Computed example of a mutant assay.
Amino acid sequence: MLRLLITLLLLCPALILASPREVDWLDLLPEEDYQAMLDMPEISHDWGAEAPGDFSSSLRSPDRNLPEVMYSTRVVNEMDGQHIELGGYPVPLETDEQGRYISFFLVPYPGACIHVPPPPPNQIVLVDYPAGIAIADIYQPLLLTGVLQIAQTSNELADASYRLQADNVENYPYE
């Protein structure tokens, strides 16, 4: 029986990918960062006026006086290479010829670049989605599936500790 199961998995790798692991943002935090977040003092949420439709605001915190955990790049090594399902909010980066977003950051809460301090790099995922998706509203949560990688990336907008090669991106299904 075990031999049959191994043969099936080798011949049909799609069986492994059929059920992605459901991941919560807290699963991406190492234990020491999780505890530091729990122990963190209240942070002001007054980060200026919103500019609707302007996705150029930075996810980098201008306030270098936040607790150290807010800049953490520490990761959970066991997450590397996992086929996951993760919900979050987009911060658009790059479009294709049809105007669909093929690259964006995924963050755990809406407005991360507008009214609230940005998440730490280990709570930002750079998403590659060659199929592209129209993103008209950064307050509309998305549900993504794909292979998660530990990959420290940095651009003018943000630092991210994870990268996701997305198989599927859709609006988050409300129940």
Rank of each mutant, 00 (worst) to 15 (best):
T145P: 02
Q82L: 10
L143V: 14
L17C: 06
Y129F: 14
E42P: 00
R60M: 09
A51P: 04
H115Y: 14
P110M: 10
P117G: 01
Q149N: 13
V91Q: 05
E42S: 06
I43Y: 03
D128G: 07
E31F: 09
G99D: 06
S103A: 13
T73M: 13
R64N: 09
V116D: 04
M37I: 07
Y139F: 15
A36S: 05
P41V: 08
P92C: 08
E78K: 14
I102P: 02
Y89L: 01
Y34R: 15
L66N: 02
V75L: 08
E42C: 03
D80I: 02
E94L: 13
T73G: 13
L59E: 01
N65F: 13
Q35V: 12
P62Y: 07
V107E: 04
P92E: 00
F55W: 13
D27K: 08
P130M: 04
Q140L: 15
M37W: 06
M37A: 10
P121A: 11
P108R: 04
V125T: 04
D80E: 08
Q149S: 14
G111S: 02
E85A: 08
F104A: 00
P130D: 00
L142S: 12
Y34M: 11
G87H: 06
P20Y: 07
G53H: 02
Y71F: 15
D27I: 01
V125K: 08
L66F: 10
L93T: 04
M37S: 07
D80R: 13
M37Q: 04
A134V: 12
D128W: 12
E42D: 06
D27V: 00
G146R: 12
S19I: 10
R64T: 09
P20S: 05
D137V: 11
E50R: 12
L28Y: 01
L66S: 02
D39T: 08
H83M: 12
Y129T: 09
N122M: 09
L28N: 01
G88D: 03
P118F: 08
S61T: 06
I114L: 04
M40W: 01
A134K: 15
L38W: 13
D27C: 03
L26T: 14
D24R: 15
E31K: 11
L59P: 00
I114T: 08
V107M: 07
L86W: 06
G48H: 05
G87E: 14
L144I: 11
I114W: 02
P141F: 09
Y109D: 03
A131H: 14
L26Y: 14
P117E: 04
S19A: 15
I133C: 04
I150Q: 06
D54K: 06
Q98G: 04
